[in-house]
């Protein structure tokens, strides 16, 4: 291959990458430019750049979508899911990584199957059970359900991280007379901290973004999550596109900010290949 065709290849490669970057970003850019425009201007020409800055859209979206309450509910839901998954999956991942129980292969196969089980296979009786127990509209309880759904991913990830802990480290600790819980807290936790962040951020995003379970179990206006509050604006405000786009911005910006801040963990976690689509 001569240098000019090599250069051509390099440039055409970049063009392709930029085109796909635009495909990913353009719909989000449309949200950004239209979130500060008056509704009439959006309807007239959604592609034009804003001439002013209509901050009222954000105030309206915040109050109509009940975003204050939504943020609180989403935080409680996500925190519950993340804490439950992190604690339970690191305990299980530790045992499975060390092959410390004889039935570990069966348990691994179980979690692999559980990871791919459709929600619709257990949704309807689970809903009915929650109704019987009076747990519908209970945000932490729904957080525990999401934790159960995310558990296989957490277990696999944590197991992979525990595999990196040298066995000698653990043996040395036992010789020094350290008990299991001291071992986990002072020796294993520091080593697997990146794993905890990875699982925390990916499971956190899953819980924050969840739709099927939350929309089914949280029907009361006082228990709606942020995304459900935004969804309830559709219909009433589908004609006021400026406010809709401002609402979308309020949901998009914090998630993208956290994603960009922790992108290393997200990308590494996803690249490990054991995440649901």
């Amino acid at each position: 291959m001569n240098t000019s065709s090599r250069k051509f290849n390099a440039i055409s490669g970049h063009v392709v990458l930029v085109i796909f970057a635009l495909i990913a970003i353009l719909p989000l850019a449309l949200v950004a430019i239209n979130s500060v425009k008056n509704s009439a201007d959006v309807t007239e020409d959604p592609l034009s750049l804003p001439t002013g800055f209509n901050f009222q859209n954000f105030i309206d979206a915040w109050s109509y979508g009940n975003f204050g309450l939504g943020f609180m509910n989403s935080l409680v839901l996500t925190a519950t899911t993340v804490v439950v998954v992190l604690v339970l999956s690191s305990l299980a991942g530790y045992v499975l990584a060390g092959k410390k129980v004889r039935s570990w292969p069966v348990i691994m196969v179980y979690f692999t199957m559980a990871m791919t089980v459709p929600i619709q296979l257990f949704l309807f009786p689970l809903y009915s059970g929650f109704a019987q127990l009076g747990l519908l509209d209970n945000v932490p309880a729904v957080g525990v359900v999401l934790a159960a759904i995310n558990m296989p991913f957490g277990v696999f990830m944590m197991r992979t991280f525990f595999l990196n802990v040298p066995a000698e480290l653990e043996e040395a600790a036992f010789v020094d007379g350290v008990n299991t819980f001291q071992l986990i807290r002072h020796i294993l936790f520091p080593v697997v901290r990146p794993g905890l962040i990875t699982v925390g951020v990916i499971v956190g995003l899953n819980a924050w973004n969840e739709f099927l379970i939350t929309s089914t179990f949280l029907q009361n206006s006082s228990t709606k999550t942020l995304t459900l509050g935004f969804l309830s604006m559709n219909g009433t405000f589908s004609t006021d596109l400026g406010v809709m786009m401002a609402g979308a911005m309020i949901l998009i910006v914090p998630v993208l900010a956290i994603f960009i801040a922790l992108q290393r963990y997200v990308v590494d976690g996803l690249a490990s290949g054991s995440v649901k689509g």
């Binding site: 935004f230 969804l231 809709m244 979308a248 949901l251 996803l270």
Partner: peptide, 16 residues
């Protein structure tokens, strides 16, 4: 950049 739509909620993407 490519992951941005992936990390956003289906509700947000669908409404957009």
């Amino acid at each position: 950049i490519y992951l941005m739509p992936y990390v956003l909620a289906p509700v947000v993407n669908a409404m957009v």
